[in-house]
Every structure is written in structure tokens, then in C-alpha cells.
Simulated assay, not measured.
Amino acid sequence: MEIVYVIEDFSIKGGAERIIAEKANYLASRFQHHVTIVSIYHDEHPISYHLEESVDFISLEIPFTPKNNSILLKTLFRIITMGKIIFKFQTIINRIQPKLIFYTMSLGAILLPLIKTKAKKVYESHSARSFTP
């Protein structure tokens, strides 16, 4: 089965990243599922947790939002960034044709309804903060 996990930045050494790495490794090695982890943001740091050779990793290479005091520029940049994320991620989903997509974090909740696919979509929350999608 083709499975995709989407996370904002897989180079962070956090709990969500560790859980996703462990689940991806387990599904790939134990059940021979084809698992791909898609990291949205570009980060110079290497990925935080070990992935089995059978687990694919793709970075969308989206730059982080630059610090800016102007609310107008910040909002405009976020809209442009979201468009890039949707386009790049949709291209990957079209190529992989997964049966199951796991989304995490708040950006995943925003992406969930915007991606066109026949795959089942699952939102997982791995956050230490309160969040209501």
C-alpha cells in the first residue's frame, strides 16, 4: 500500500517527527508498505531521525516565511507560500497515488481539504499545544 506522511519540517528533533519516523519504519519493514514522508519546509539541517532505506523522504523545499513587520507583506507572502505548497504537494500526490495520507500539525489541517485525491485522509495531532482545526 502507498502511504504518505506530511509534516511541516522533518529536521526538527521533536515528538511528532520521532513518532512519524517510527511509524513509517514499522509500516515499511513489518508490512512492506511503500511509505513516503513529505516535509514541507526547507531546512539546512539533516533529518532528525533514522529512516529505513525503504522509506522515501521528499522535501518540498518551501522557504520559511521571512521576518517582516508589515502585516500586509506577511499576509501576501503566506498566501503565495500556501499556493506553492499546494501545487508542489499535489504534484507529488498525483505521482505517488497513495491510498492513505496522514497529515500532522496545523498546516496539515489546512492542506487536508485542499488536495485532490482518492486517498483516505487522516489528521493526526502530535502537539503539546491546544489546537482546534
Rank of each mutant, 00 (worst) to 15 (best):
D56N: 09
A21W: 04
S106A: 15
V6P: 02
R30P: 05
I101A: 00
K23N: 11
Q32L: 13
I19R: 00
R18K: 09
I62G: 01
L112N: 12
H50Y: 11
H34G: 01
E52Y: 10
I71T: 14
I115P: 12
P133W: 11
F31E: 11
G108K: 01
Y41I: 05
I3M: 10
R18T: 03
S59N: 06
F102V: 03
P133N: 08
R129Q: 13
K67Q: 06
K120L: 14
E8N: 13
I71Y: 15
S54H: 03
A109E: 08
K13Y: 05
L111D: 03
I37V: 02
I92E: 13
T75I: 10
S48G: 09
E61S: 14
S59G: 09
T91L: 06
V122R: 05
I71N: 15
T132P: 06
S54Q: 13
S59I: 05
F64D: 07
V55P: 07
G83V: 06
I85A: 00
I93Q: 04
H126F: 04
I62E: 07
T81F: 06
K74L: 15
E17P: 05
F77I: 09
S39G: 05
V35W: 03
Y49R: 02
L112H: 08
K116H: 12
I110C: 09
E124K: 04
R18L: 12
L112G: 07
S39V: 08
I79A: 02
H34C: 06
